[in-house]
């Protein structure tokens, strides 16, 4: 089938503002949007820039705004979109070139919640044991691939930009609810601040955008509750 691919492009050397470019691409209904982008880049216009790595939804590089929704280009099929497809960079982060955005603010928020195991207790003789139930408690957060689909679909993040964002909260959740971790107070400092979880207005955009089907909003609410019960 013939697909009309509209891409919002931006070349920092030439453009003042992003501009729409339209490409005609021959595609199979089972092609991914990533395949279309490759067809454009490899055979029509080599200057098109976008991030991608593994190509099957694990590395989290190719989140983009496809037909108005944040999705991974490698997990979105042409047959689910129709014959006119628009592709834009994810919103709320500065565009570097075409579909590539500056991810630094996103990762600054990620670092702020200390996304690693914190436990200063002397290590036991063998492993720190955990029951299947304790492991299941934070299972959903472990599915996160840091693609930024959630954070860049959040209206609070778009407007103000000082919000820590859903992805960082999901990462914090993964450790706060880990029975082996002792660092929740340190994380609460970043999460409880003016730019932390209390900015969340439960718009549910993040939950809808997540390509890994993490119930993001629910996890954010659980973190709010954890902070609440920790303080009172």
């Amino acid at each position: 089938m013939q697909v009309t691919l509209k891409i919002l492009r931006f070349d920092p050397a030439k453009d003042k503002k992003p501009r729409w470019e339209t490409y005609q691409v021959e595609a199979e209904p089972t092609d991914r949007v990533l395949d279309l982008l490759h067809k454009v880049k490899w055979y029509q216009d080599g200057s098109l820039a976008f991030r991608r790595s593994c190509g099957h939804g694990i590395c989290g590089s190719d989140a983009m705004l496809i037909n108005g929704k944040n999705r991974l280009a490698c997990k979105t099929l042409v047959k689910d979109l129709g014959s006119v497809i628009t592709v834009e960079p994810i919103r709320g982060l500065p565009v570097e070139k075409d579909l590539i955005v500056d991810m630094e603010p996103f990762f600054a928020a990620y670092r702020a919640v200390k996304p690693y195991l914190i436990n200063d207790e002397p290590p036991p003789q063998r492993e720190r044991l955990q029951s299947p139930e304790e492991r299941a408690r934070f299972d959903q957060g472990t599915k996160c691939i840091l693609c930024a689909s959630c954070t860049t679909s959040c209206p609070v993040f778009w407007v103000n930009g000082t919000y820590i964002g859903p992805a960082a909260i999901v990462q914090a959740h993964r450790f706060i609810f880990d029975s082996r971790d002792r660092g929740k107070r340190e994380r609460f400092k970043a999460l409880g601040s003016g730019s932390g979880v209390w900015r969340c207005r439960t718009a549910y955009n993040c939950t809808e955008a997540c390509p890994r089907e993490i119930p993001v909003t629910q996890l954010i609410e659980e973190v709010k509750r954890a902070i609440l019960f920790d303080s009172f």
Partner: peptide, 26 residues
């Protein structure tokens, strides 16, 4: 735009009150 603190030390400085929690409860 963007998050003000680039490192978690900065985030820590920025984040020393429970004010927003109290407002939320209020």
């Amino acid at each position: 735009m963007a998050i003000k603190s680039k490192r978690y030390q900065e985030a820590r400085l920025e984040a020393s009150t429970n004010l927003e929690l109290y407002w939320w409860v209020f």
